[in-house]
């Protein structure tokens, strides 16, 4: 496959044709913050945290959905991008109810660690304090809408890795929310296979194993990786290498 050469943050690198800027950066050891991206699942470019500056392109483009091109000059960490990233995170924290101290994901949350890594020491926007519910009807898992950031990772793994199609998005704008089947409680869902992939995929404390209490909810992404590798590379990870 043809290789493309490009520059990321001053580093000359080469990447496979068809690779995304995010993949290329990753291989070159440049870490771009992401939230809606999940290895192995198709990208949607929704969270806008991975936006990068590409010389000659007036708009900022998401690294996760933009393909590399010959001679691209990319900046991933300008002051402007850092400012936008912090604002994006502040908007998320103000949007729903993130009370880290009492959250199952405390200490194991991608949103939380992104926030401190981006230097977010407080939220300048007024908190919305919306009223959202917790769906505890499923036998094994729970969903706390207060912590959901609508990254749709759960929806994508449920449809494209598990193939169950249980999870979906309903509503618009600030009222958008994750539903099971045709907006029924998760426990009543006919299609859910109880595979738990959505729970493993969730970056925040929104999806959790029942019985986890504050700060206990750790995720095991190897279960997703296993399937993705099996599907894409036709290899089974045996854990014995």
């Amino acid at each position: 496959m043809a290789a493309k050469t490009l520059t990321i943050d001053g580093k000359q690198i080469s990447a496979e044709e068809g690779a995304t800027v995010l993949q290329a950066a990753d291989e070159a050891g440049v870490k771009i913050p992401t939230l809606c991206h999940l290895d192995g699942v198709y990208d949607v470019g929704a969270c806008r945290l991975c936006l990068v500056e590409i010389a000659g392109v007036p708009k900022l483009l998401p690294a996760c959905t933009t393909q590399v091109a010959e001679g691209m000059v990319i900046h991933t960490d300008s002051e402007r991008l850092r400012k936008y990233r912090r604002m994006t995170l502040e908007l998320l924290f103000a949007e729903r109810n993130h009370v880290c101290a009492v959250c199952v994901a405390n200490g194991h949350c991608e949103l939380q660690s992104l926030a401190y890594n981006q230097g977010m020491d407080h939220v300048r926007y007024e908190y919305n304090f919306p009223k959202w519910s917790v769906d505890n009807t499923h036998r094994l898992f729970g969903m706390d809408h207060n912590r959901c950031i609508l990254c749709t990772r759960c929806v994508r793994v449920c449809w494209h890795i598990e193939g169950a199609g249980t999870k979906n998005v309903a509503g618009r704008g600030g009222k958008a929310h994750i539903i099971s089947d045709l907006n029924m409680s998760w426990g009543q869902s006919y299609s859910c296979t109880e595979c738990g992939k959505c729970v493993q995929a969730c970056p925040t404390g929104a999806l959790f194993h029942k019985g986890s209490t504050a700060a206990e909810m750790e995720r095991d992404r190897t279960r997703l990786e296993f399937l993705v590798t099996a599907r894409e590379k036709k290899q089974w990870i045996t854990g014995e290498e």
Partner: peptide, 13 residues
């Protein structure tokens, strides 16, 4: 910094 646990009551409207 965030109003945290005391602010949980804000969610009630």
């Amino acid at each position: 910094v965030t109003a945290n646990v005391p602010a949980i009551r804000n969610q009630l409207g």
